[in-house]
Design a protein around this nucleic acid. Structure first.
Lengths: 343, 343
DNA sequence: GTCTATTCCGTAAACGTTTACGACGATAGC
DNA sequence: GCTATCGTCGTAAACGTTTACGGAATAGAC
């Protein structure tokens, strides 16, 4: 069921059929109507391969995720983000395809493959690193891309990021308000932009309040349950344990809760726990409910897609064409996991 | 950088270049070596659009997921599954692309679009329903597909499924062994194959043990935290509450734990809790650790991909070509959420 | 009636591959 | 020396679409 068959069925040339379907102005209204009706009746849809071969565009945007990170943190985060991205693209007939990168494989190779085989018109990258060769490669090839998270690499490109400064200030404001002076921070892999930004903000906020930064209170841990458990264990073993701990992710908090429980301690009474993760329904059902941040991930995804579209020549006019880089706010949701006055 | 340019650079015809790259036998070993080296040096990779137009194949398999289900249950499940699927396909140069279907949109339309626009060579569907028009459509068009979960629709097609009978028997064996007679079952949306199979098995196992089935003990609830909270609330309000509750998903258990905690009750002491969900690290860090099932989701994904490949003419010979339908085992991981003697 | 402008449509080239077909030279068999 | 076989390679068609170009028909202006 190609365009040829459709044209023959209508006694029209394929050129006219194509023009009718693509909304070109130089076709009779009556003819267009006939074509559209016949196409719907016969279930014709243009072949993507033929179309992209001709016009050099695929109508596909790739989102590259690594399964090792998603399996260690929150798949929900990326699901919501992807949903927003996809909805935005759908308005232009673009499809989002998610490429899952397995742990061993080099992400740069994956990106190269997508570009060289022309598997997508543009790429969205997450989990940006401070120094990210993927971005440099894409920028060098002049391939449209956007990132979730800033990076020092890749020149000036569209991105969305979160306001880590604000989050850390809100978190430490709150904890300091409860009287905490020994506030610990658990971080993930060094090199990820997210972690360096959190650490920087953490240091700054403490110093602004005249609290000395104790490097021993910043420990690196995996962002899942076991990581949180281990981190909490280490804290409790200290001669002078922190009275409050900031975790990057709620799954790590689950581990920390378990650790405290085993030691007969209670979060929110003996140790204050606060998480920088996006608020998820699980957070409010934890015991005690977890203080964390509300994020509009869906909206963030949509906006990220818009930022990318604005940088693509084909869509630039619809979006003003300016470079879009935005820092998104968090909203602190105070619950019971961190609310006590330290004496 | 097309094949033409590469051929010109080598002073060879494009036909020979193509044959050399695709491993055809009728090309001189020396020539092949030159071509391969030049391709690597110049970073040439065949254009997917041109290739698929010519040979009518895309080297892409679509996995269709709905965001409303994944957001209500476990994204981890699908991540692990996808990872296995993708690894298997990668061995044949196939790419897996995940299509996220938003809540409102009809999944059938989505499937039709993929087929009509030839966006994939095959489709993998999850969340099959007892009566699933998507499968009938695909079977009618003779489009290769496989499903995660059996269905009455779509004729005989490759699928993978879980051994619900075994799981329910193991669960009720264990609970009955602790002396429980009033065992409740929380189920999800009716119509999903998963839920009907669990309910059937539940009824059968109870009857086999001479325990009367109390329909009031089978309640439908959303599979996330709030659903579990609400279900548990309803159970506690009964004149004769169940002493054990089987939840389909661990996230529902989180809600149930919270509900029990508010009533001063303790899971594993006052009410036995058991979950049919796949074991996730979070389960062993809950308080008390949750009894659930171990599943090899990655292996399941790989096998599902193999089943699909075996049904595709292009790859049938590598896989024997037989129809593959498998029921996968679960392994009960007993923990503390359900271990007490009633009576 | 001629000329021009407009509207609509058909023709054919082009996109980057793969592959059937045929051609060429070399080798071997007789 | 003729034919047959083999190994290697070039040529060109084909995949399904879009679009530049040109042509036919119509209408309007003089």
């Amino acid at each position: 069921m190609g365009i040829k068959e459709l044209a023959r069925h209508l006694n029209i040339s394929i050129g006219t059929v194509s023009r009718a379907l693509n909304g070109h102005p130089e076709v009779n209204a009556e003819t267009r109507k006939r074509v559209l009706e016949a196409a719907a009746a016969l279930g014709y849809a243009p072949d993507q391969a033929g179309r992209s071969l001709r016009q050099g565009t695929l109508n596909v945007v790739a989102l590259l995720l690594s399964t090792d990170l998603t399996s260690k943190t929150d798949t929900m985060f990326f699901m919501e983000l992807s949903r927003g991205i996809q909805d935005q693209f759908a308005e232009h007939g673009l499809d989002l395809v998610i490429h899952l990168n397995k742990p061993g494989m080099d992400m740069l190779d994956r990106v190269k493959r997508i570009v060289e085989r022309r598997q997508a018109d543009a790429i969205i990258l997450a989990e940006t690193r401070d120094n990210d060769p993927r971005l440099d490669y894409l920028a060098g090839r002049n391939f449209p891309f956007a990132t979730m998270g800033r990076s020092w690499s890749g020149g000036s490109h569209p991105w969305m990021d979160l306001d880590f400064d604000f989050a850390m200030r809100a978190a430490i404001d709150r904890l300091a308000g409860f009287g905490h002076r020994r506030v610990a921070l658990v971080t993930g892999d060094p090199g990820y932009r997210l972690d360096t930004m959190l650490q920087d903000a953490y240091r700054r906020e403490l110093m602004d309040r005249g609290i000395a930064v104790d490097e021993a209170l910043m420990i690196k841990a995996d962002t899942h349950e076991e990581g949180g458990y281990k981190a909490m264990t280490d804290f409790l073993a200290m001669s002078e344990p922190p009275t409050a701990v900031i975790f990057p992710h709620y799954r790590a908090v689950v581990g920390a809760y378990a650790c405290l429980s085993e030691s007969g301690l209670q979060p929110g009474r003996d140790v204050a726990i606060l998480s920088c993760s996006a608020d998820t329904t699980i957070a409010q059902f934890m015991a005690p409910p977890l203080t964390c941040f509300r994020l509009d991930l869906y909206g963030l995804g949509r906006r990220l897609a818009q930022a990318l579209l604005a940088s693509m020549s084909r869509f630039a006019e619809s979006y003003g064409g300016a470079l879009v880089q935005e820092i998104w706010p968090w909203e602190l949701i105070g619950r019971d996991s961190d609310g006590f006055r330290v004496g």
